[in-house]
Every structure is written in C-alpha cells, then in structure tokens.
C-alpha cells in the first residue's frame, strides 16, 4: 500500500511539475493525448490497486453512480479548449488540473466502472467515442484557434489524432462484440443452473 502511494505521487510529480511536465504542455497533442490521459491513468491504477475495496468509498458510491458522474463531468470539463488555456495561463488552474484529473476522474472511474450497470457502461463507451469524433471534427474544421496558447496547425493535427483514435477504438469494440459466442455462453449458463438444481 505505502509503496503504491509512493509510486503514485512520484508519477504525478513527473507528469506535472518537472521538466517532463513542461515538455508535455508545449505541444497541444502531447498535452491532450499524453499528459491528460496519463494523469487519469495514474489515478485509475492507484484506485484499482488501493481503493477498490475501501468500505467507506463503497458506502458512498452505491452502484457506482456518484463516482461515474464525477468522472464524466470533471473529465468533460478538461475537454474544453478554455480549460487547457486556463491551465497554461500561469494561474492555480495548473495545480487544479494535476489534482483533479487523477483524484476526481481516474480514481472515481476505477472504483465505479465495475459497479455500474453493463448497459450504462456501454452507453458511456459510445458517448466517449462520439465525443472523440465530435471534438476531432471540431478541431479539424474550426477556422479559428480554439486555444490561445496553441497554433492552428497543431489543432488540426490533434483533430486528426482524435478521429484516428475514435475510429480504432470503435473498430476494436465492435470486433470485441463478435469475438465471443454469447449464445453459447447463455446456453452454458442455463445448463449449469439446470445441473445445480437437479443435483
């Protein structure tokens, strides 16, 4: 437990205040597609390892509702071009970013994902994909710079990256749906129950 906290804190530090942190933020693509996901991932892994069985968190996060809502709304906020600018403008927003992404997006996602209904999970996956498509399209077609701190050509590259990621993810998830034989599983389950009942 204590070692995982140490790694978690070290990782956050590397992503934020060090020279590496600045290297991420110089480029819009690295900022959005590497630093922000890594901050979320850090929180997610930490949550999976250390907090998933925390009794207090289970108590206040019944069915994963509070956690997944927090993850969606706070994560969504960081998708606004304005939020990126604010984090770069030299205000406290940079610190808010480094704290909110792991703690209010990554950790809630880790402790809620397995608890929410499978249909909700599917809806969130689809919504995430459409968000990527919409943002990608917006960044590609916008004639204006959406972030004051980044150039127009970077915005276009980011738009393309969004579309590539969204397309690959949808293909992956679609293929995944057809990888297993669900009918067979259902039959297996039924047979299993039938066996148990008769014995």
């Amino acid at each position: 437990m204590s070692r995982s906290i140490l790694f978690f804190v070290l990782f956050l530090y590397l992503l934020s205040y060090s020279i590496i942190g600045q290297w991420f933020e110089v480029s819009m693509v690295r900022h959005v597609l590497i630093q922000i996901p890594c901050l979320v991932l850090a929180g997610y892994l930490f949550g999976r390892k250390s907090l998933i069985n925390n009794r207090f968190l289970i108590l206040i996060n019944d069915k994963g509702l509070a956690g997944i809502l927090m993850c969606i709304f706070i994560g969504g906020y960081w998708m606004l071009p304005r939020a990126l600018d604010a984090a770069l403008a030299g205000s406290n927003m940079a610190l808010v970013k480094y704290i909110s992404l792991p703690f209010f997006v990554g950790i809630p996602l880790a402790i809620s994902w397995q608890r929410i209904h499978p249909i909700a999970r599917a809806v969130i996956k689809i919504e995430f994909l459409t968000m990527l498509f919409r943002l990608g399209w917006l960044y590609l077609v916008s004639p204006n710079r959406l972030c004051n701190f980044y150039q127009l050509n970077e915005q276009i590259i980011l738009g393309k990256c969004f579309l590539i990621i969204a397309t690959s993810l949808s293909l992956y998830w679609i293929l995944q749906l057809f990888a297993e034989d669900y009918r067979e599983q259902e039959t297996l389950k039924k047979n299993n129950l039938y066996d148990q009942a008769s014995s």
């Binding site: 606004l80 071009p81 304005r82 604010a86 004051n148």
Partner: peptide, 18 residues
C-alpha cells in the same frame, strides 16, 4: 459539477478563453 461547468464556461456561454 454544475458549479464547475457554470464557472468554467461563464454560464454556458464561453467555451474558449477568447
């Protein structure tokens, strides 16, 4: 969340810093 979004978008009016 509502407060964050309200504050962060000037009452759902501004999504870019410009």
């Amino acid at each position: 969340s509502a407060a964050v979004w309200w504050q962060g978008t000037s009452g759902f009016k501004a999504f870019t810093s410009e």
